[in-house]
Amino acid sequence: MDILNTLVLLANFVIVPAVTYGSQLALGALGVTLIYGILRFSNFAHGDTMAFGTMVTVLVTWMLQSWGVSLGPVPTALLALPFGIAVTAGLVLWTDRVVYRFYRKQKAKPVILVIVSMGVMFVMNGLVRFIIGPDDQNFADGARFLIGAREFKEMTGLKEGLAIKASQGLTVLTAVIVVALLFWFLNHTRTGKSMRAYSDNEDLALLSGINPERVVAVTWIIVAALATVAGVLYGLDKSFKPFTYFQLLLPIFAAAIVGGLGSPLGAIAGGFVIAFSEVTITYAWKKAAAYLLPADMAPDGLLQLLAVDYKFAVSFVILVVVLLFKPTGLFKGKSV
């Protein structure tokens, strides 16, 4: 019984949150890794691209809500999501045209593009704050829980409850669908294969007649979609605040690098590695230990390795350790 209770406890406080957060990070890291693979720079504006996409979705959601549109138990935001993606895709394509293309033509060094992306980050960040303000925004509606803790306890007769929020279920489901679509696209369509070819060997892609500008445009569109989906899911699960999205940059980059920059599979793995480490290291294991250990050995401390405020430190330490021991990441990424 105690073992079952422990498992439920862990599922509730570690596994479910980590899987959710991992899915969100994986989607974010996929965007970063695609830009890196195709355009060959680390895009510092990615967090703010997520914020922008989410903002558009939030605005459209509010509009739909004011019209009385509702999807029942499913958040209205899902209906608004395609608009968010479309507007964000428009914005990044426009940014590419007026900003990045110039440097691409010049064959500028990657670090210059990183600096340029810092400028874009400023502009996007300002834009988002300008339009929606710097505060927390709530746009979630629909059902709150798939399973409530009380229901679960009544159902199973266990002492511990397992609560799964609707947003958590939605996150995982959406992430699985998006990732499946992405991999199908990359591995089975002509355009997707041309993207992989371009990422693998730019010059030879040119010699095969692949149009680089088209590859780049398709990449931006996909990245806009991934960023918006990741941002909206994160926003539904927690809340939407522009600055938080900027701060997500660190765990997202950590995930992409840990997995191996340029490797989509790596981005996903990295997302989960980072999420699980963050959650397990900042979780207080006292209760779990109390179940498993005999009563007289129960610990008096919280058994929390690090306070939640230090979760950045976790991504960072994992990042450094991986870089020191496996510089190209878990799944061999590119090293330019």
Binding site: S194, R196, D200, L204, I210
Partner: peptide, 29 residues
């Protein structure tokens, strides 16, 4: 390429991370 010229460079002349068949497909892009 579209006019009917094909080129095999001296180095880096394959897509190393793609399968043989995909390499050929890319040739026919």
């Amino acid at each position: 390429v579209a006019k009917g010229m094909g080129f095999v460079p001296q180095t880096h002349n394959i897509f190393a991370s793609m399968s043989v068949e995909e390499n050929l497909e890319m040739g026919a892009f």
